[in-house]
Design a protein around this nucleic acid. Structure first.
Lengths: 251, 251
DNA sequence: CGTTGCCTTGATTCTCTTCAACAGGGGTGG
DNA sequence: CCACCCCTGTTGAAGAGAATCAAGGCAACG
């Protein structure tokens, strides 16, 4: 895979988060107990029903957050990538979804307890955390819209474009394409479709010379036409960076 | 309608938020410039594309947050009720969805600018804000799962149950039912269905003696059976109250 | 008293699922 | 080394579920 950071600070200052810290914030961050964890492919990080203990900032690799349903289906909520956060929610609660790796994955893990402390210390950091939450929220809303009001072809196109924009913004991909380790089953679980139908939609997109997803590579063939088909708007992804509540006082 | 608060403080201390403030927090809240606004039915509060200016805490009435699509369809993201928040995201950005009233609606409006200030002043309040964001996030995830992996009947049942749990938790409804001013068109836009099909699903639910939604009233006839049909789990709604990051230090 | 908004129902169409079968690659064990 | 299996991808045919098209109902409102 592409870039990977050695420290949380380095990751937060890199794209897409691009935080700019004061010395005080840096100091606070240094005192924060963080562990860099590695997970092999297809390993559960936390499970639906587990108590909430930690927050994760993804450093490298692909994973997915999903909800298992009693019917045996699952709904994939998101594929968090480098620079995304997982698990920012209330403590003293239980997880109502599962987070698992897809490829080998490295993440920075911060305990809820330590996070509480830093929220008390640095308003800039807490507003940064809100920024991360807002970013995840924007992904969710787009995903929701995708499932509710777009047909299978457009929906598939849209997801490929979204992951393209996200991989580009964190250095994992380019305008032309990106490496994507997802199976058609995983795509289907995210898109609310069957893998069989996803397969047909991918073929359709390929045959229309819009985008090819084969052998773990997404290749944009005719990006403008694909963007038009999917009515894709990159702007929603730009929001929610680290320039949080606190800094906007400068306006 | 049922309860309504005269001040933001009163609203925050009431169910479902149930905040407990220190004197310092109360003071900070008192200095916060808040305006109580009323909107007539079917009025836009902010529009897709407008710059972000304010955050809203709903006091009474029904509204909806939605995204308009170029196709002319729209996807309703959420129906925020008393005690819910709208617009908590990054400043210096644009809204990528619209917030409009459905019934007459009263909301507390706080400028982003003022909110920044309070985040700097009170860590407890900022963690409370994170709590509100986490709560909205839980709604989104459930809604997403609903659209992705449940059929029309179950999906409809689930939404009626969710709004039932939410109205109950903020005093607008009871175990037996609640007043619901939504049209079948609005339900359809939330559920990713056509109004015609929603109509059929409501009839089905009524004929199976599970729940009746008629004349603006949702009446749970056989709640246990309905909960079973929809695989409804109220717990996800319980998370994300005001007992935020900061307080959990007491653990 | 006609219009408008919301609800209701039937008939038809089409999107997506389900069921079924097969092909290629990678690993494993006999 | 090969037989076997599992996982992923691929394709076809049948069937279900929801959309679309069409029409009529009732109540509120000017």
């Amino acid at each position: 895979m592409s870039s990977e950071s050695k420290s949380l600070l380095e990751l937060l200052e890199a794209s897409p988060i691009s935080a700019r810290f004061s010395d005080a914030d840096r100091k606070a961050l240094h005192s924060l107990p963080v562990s860099l964890r590695r997970y092999p492919p297809h390993t559960v990080v936390y499970n639906q029903g587990d108590p909430v203990r930690s927050v994760y900032i993804i450093n490298s690799g692909w994973g997915c957050v999903y909800r298992d349903l009693p019917s045996g289906d699952r709904q994939i909520i998101d594929f968090p990538l480098r620079g995304d956060s997982v698990g920012l929610r209330m403590p003293a609660a239980f997880n109502y979804n599962t987070y698992a790796s897809i490829t080998e994955m490295s993440v920075f893990e911060i305990s809820q307890y330590a996070l509480n402390a830093i929220v008390l210390q640095s308003p800039y950091l807490s507003s940064g955390i809100m920024g991360l939450m807002a970013r995840q929220r924007a992904f969710l809303i787009e995903h929701l819209t995708n499932l509710g009001r777009r047909n299978a072809l457009v929906r598939t196109a849209h997801l490929l474009l979204e992951m393209g924009a996200r991989t580009k913004s964190n250095g994992m991909g380019t305008e032309k394409g990106y490496s994507c380790p997802l199976t058609q089953y995983e795509l289907a679980d995210a898109l609310g479709l069957t893998a069989i139908h996803v397969n047909r939609m991918l073929r359709e997109l390929r045959e229309q010379n819009l985008v090819a997803f084969r052998y773990g590579e997404v290749e944009f063939i005719n990006r403008p036409a694909l963007v038009r088909l999917a009515n894709f708007d990159e702007n929603y992804l730009a929001i929610g960076m680290f320039m949080g509540f606190a800094t906007s006082q400068l306006d």
